[in-house]
Amino acid sequence: MKSLRLPCLERAGLDGWMVRLFDRIEENNLLWLAALAGECETEFGDTLVDLVPSYTTLLVVFDPFRLTPCDARQKLIAILARLEPADAGATSKQHCLPTWYDPRSGPDLQRVAELSGLSVNAVIDAHSARDYRVFALGFAPGFAFMGLLDTALICPRLDTPRQHVPAGSVAIAGQQSAAYPAATPGGWNLIGRTPTRLFDRDRDGFSLLQVGDRVRFVPVDQATFEARGGDTKAVSQPGPAQAR
């Protein structure tokens, strides 16, 4: 990716263009990506099928029966030529996710403490001390990739993913943090659990967290966690080798 001139457009099938704006993950990327997404909504109107924002890119999927790839490309070039970053204050919603940090809800707290050379309490303090931004949703409905983590907490994924990560699990891997909206397999380090429902098909917008939002994890005790509907069931240990 070294000699790439940015921004650039890459073909993504018959009905898509990948708009690459950046080559590094930075919080400011979100302002440009939000502006780009907004412009695409306006400019493409109902010929727009899907927009998939991520850390450095926006995948634009259009209706190939009403717009040729060439026309779509012209639109995107025009948008890029006049693009200005979104207003930093205007685009983000703030969320607080109450989080029960405990070895029962976060069986990897100890591992993270050992890898970082911090105490378990210091890990919890470091994780809950800052706002994270939602850079992308993916992996599963409502699964928000958040960053950036305190560099002291950066640690690799598990060698063997768990077959079953309980819904609400708060996790970290690399520079990122996330909370699992539903029980799925998963290879991130589990450090706590939130009782907040993250994906709800009956909610307007479906996903509590949207790209660009700010998220703060707020430590709560077990009683508060349970009072808010949290499930205290213990986490199963990493599963057999078939999980990847």
Binding site: G13, D23, V52, S54
Partner: peptide
């Protein structure tokens, strides 16, 4: 860096 994936990628 993770990015959107379209059908048939």
């Amino acid at each position: 860096v993770s990015e959107g994936i379209s059908l048939g990628a």
